[in-house]
Write a protein that binds this DNA or RNA. Structure first.
Lengths: 163, 163
DNA sequence: GAAAATATTTCGAGCCTTAAAATATCAAAA
DNA sequence: TTTTGATATTTTAAGGCTCGAAATATTTTC
């Protein structure tokens, strides 16, 4: 085996770097593929946007309702943003703002009965899309992916937190 | 082992469905974490947006330049969109529109010397961010993730193509 | 040539996003 | 109790990305 096919340390480092980049680009491509599919189907089948769906999904997980600020934190968007999205859902009758009995500055946002019903239908469809999208992978692979993503999340969160 | 801890087929199906959903939500969380980090740093360090960076990155891979329509296809966005992003990059002197000698309807978009220089600096930083973000994973894990994502991409693309 | 297809741009509209200013209220210290 | 500083939310202003449809210009095809 000739010596010159063994990469020097700089070449090796660059190759490793490029690998991380490729990994990210592939991951981004996958996510965009799925996310765009979901957006398109939410719009065509239910005439709703992903942010609105996400907000409703947060509320479904918290039947006691959430304050605007809590929604903002969980959805990782600014408060003004939540105001806008909530306004629309209120207009459509899917969500209500109730005055907080504890704090008169705050609202508590809840799903209406119609909102709950509507969300359930959407969530069911959404879950079905996911099953279809992942169906080409074996269960073992999906489990493995799930675990690796946990590791990635930890790793990335540590770095992202700094800046 | 009591019989009743063996889930019936419906319960099992539902559990499997929920797993796919959780997998997706975790993947989305990871991607958003990283993507937001990248957007923020591109803005704070280089005063550029991700779509603009992406367009430049396409051009760097194609030194002979690309037509607007090719950019549109590769970036998976509409033509009108590419027009807007290109306009801004032209204004900043990072990119030029040249008339195509073959087809007078078409432009060929290329990086300027300054655009190339600027992109190289950004790409280097970008790669560094990736190395950092993935550094908490072992190399074996990153390789495994890379392979699993290939499988996912195939699976999802097949489904997404239908609609 | 006329008709159909292609490459882009323009226009209108919607949404998300942020940052900063304005309100209102709460909570704690003086 | 009054003041002061923090908190919860909305409003406002501006910027960007995005799409889809209509408008232009040009090429290709029949």
């Amino acid at each position: 085996m000739p010596k010159n096919i063994i990469p020097d340390s700089e070449t090796r480092a660059t190759a490793e770097h490029a690998k991380d980049l490729r990994l990210w680009l592939r991951m981004l491509a996958c996510t965009n593929l799925i996310e765009n599919h979901v957006r398109a189907r939410l719009r065509s089948d239910f005439d709703i946007t992903l942010p609105r769906f996400d907000l409703m999904s947060q509320l479904e997980r918290s039947p006691q309702g959430l304050k605007m600020g809590e929604l903002s934190k969980r959805m990782m968007v600014t408060g003004g943003n939540v105001t806008g999205i909530t306004d629309q859902l209120v207009r459509e009758g899917l969500v209500v703002r109730e005055d907080s009995p504890k704090d008169r500055r705050a609202y508590i946002v809840k799903l209406t009965a119609e909102g709950r019903k509507s969300f359930r239908r959407m969530a069911e469809a959404h879950e079905g899309w996911m099953v279809a999208l992942f169906s080409g992978m074996e269960e073992r692979q999906r489990d493995e992916l799930y675990d690796l993503l946990a590791s990635l999340k930890t790793s990335a969160a540590k770095v992202a937190a700094k800046h």
